[in-house]
Design a protein around this nucleic acid. Structure first.
Lengths: 243, 243
DNA sequence: GCAAAAGTGTTCCGACTACACCCATGC
DNA sequence: GCATGGGTGTAGTCGGAACACTTTTGC
């Protein structure tokens, strides 16, 4: 930023503590549910409310590092997809601003993450509550976290339509209907015909057939595919719809 | 954000000053050039470098208000389009962090704005340099501002393709080739055939024919159109391409 | 008349939709 | 065999790309 040559009269600059709050999504592929990770607060303000996992940024720590730290403190996960969302920074968004020392404001740089549900172990740090909530059953959250969540959900849907985030969340090899199920749970049941989805996906040429099959109960065994990062590379910057 | 119950060992939280830097674009419709507003720095660090207009957030001021203030301090403009871009907040992005009091970090919440070139009067505050730069001729800027600019330019192109920002920047009434010129200067000459662009734009039904004509030198006079906000309302949340 | 700019129409072709249908497995 | 899920094919339609052509002005 820029220092503006300050007018003779003293302009009071605000002092900030900067927090990072992360909307962490995962998809329960068994029950086909979109989940968000929430933590229960044990202190004021908003004692007893659920909130998005977050933390305050430490000395020498970058925003990304802080966001990463939240992920590794709450869940054990091999970092999957993480991106900055939006910065909420109005005055009075945090009740602590009143109690605290003069002029300290709390600013939240929100992030959104998508993790692989199956690879994820919640870290039950003692008594504390930490849980996956189906998106449809999220209660009233602390602070402006409902707003952040709404924003994050929008971004998730955009991301999944226009970028291959889905493959970050799928296992190494997967069937085409795995992909379809994932899209359907994020975007809603009626987003596309299954067979047309198949065709488009294959036509892109970003999936490798592993020549292996998997049999899951009744029905014909499905081919297993792998995401081909090299084939995708040239398409990376082109606008593309994974619809 | 969330206060994490702090471990017995003291964790040092960083203290921040928060700045707002804004990438302000406008389109010179005479010369068909995309312009960015830059200001010349007169103090250290980066004395003598050009930078994005910015300011530090004051007590009681929201981020949006600070961004607005930058716009009105530098140029006289009836606020046209403004949105938050990205927050840059790594440690050591600002050299002042070393000189300053212990642990103060500088964080930049960048914004991007699109203003109407013709309606804009630069406020020459004394000696200071402030100027519109053609995007192609932007020099090495202070801080990480080149990076912010690149990011902003990307966002501008996305915005103009998927939302009707263009009409915020056009005069009340305009010809279809005015719109085309605008798109061409932002997206590059070869983004689309003119006549197909026309057809698509009209088919959307968001333009009202004012029944008036304008004659600009040689050639057949062009019809003047007006953006129809009401007709656009229902399409607002649908994905749409103005390509 | 001619150049310049606005505006219209037409043809081609690829992509998406909505299905119907075939295939391989468990039981 | 038959239910279940995987996989292929096709006919109809919509929309964009490319480009030729017409209209209205200034000079």
């Amino acid at each position: 930023m820029t220092i503006k040559a300050q007018s003779p009269a003293v302009v009071e600059l605000a002092d900030f503590k900067v927090g990072v709050d992360t909307v962490i999504f995962s998809v329960d592929t068994i029950q086909n549910q979109l989940l968000v990770l929430l933590v229960l607060r044990h202190e004021n303000p908003y004692n007893g409310y659920w909130s998005l996992p977050g933390t305050l940024v430490r000395v020498g720590e970058s925003l990304e590092a802080a966001a990463d730290r939240v992920l590794t403190e709450k869940i054990r996960v091999n970092n999957l997809y993480l991106e900055q969302l939006f910065t909420f920074g109005g005055p009075n968004r945090d009740p602590r601003e009143a109690e605290d020392a003069y002029n300290v404001r709390y600013l939240s740089v929100s992030h959104f993450a998508l993790v692989r549900y199956e690879d994820t172990a919640l870290i039950a740090d003692g008594v504390s509550g930490i849980a996956w909530y189906p998106l449809s059953r999220v209660p009233k959250l602390a602070f402006d976290h409902n707003e952040i969540l709404t924003y994050g959900y929008q971004r998730l849907r955009n991301k999944i339509e226009y970028s291959p985030v889905a493959f970050d969340v799928l296992p190494e090899t997967f069937t085409l209907s795995d992909v379809y199920q994932l899209y359907a749970t994020v975007l809603g049941e009626d987003f596309s015909d299954y067979s047309n989805f198949r065709t488009r996906l294959l036509k892109m040429g970003i999936l490798q057939d592993t020549q292996k099959k998997t049999s899951r109960g009744a029905g014909r065994p499905a081919s297993l595919y792998r995401f081909d990062a090299e084939a995708f590379e040239p398409l990376k910057d082109k606008p593309m719809v994974f619809l």
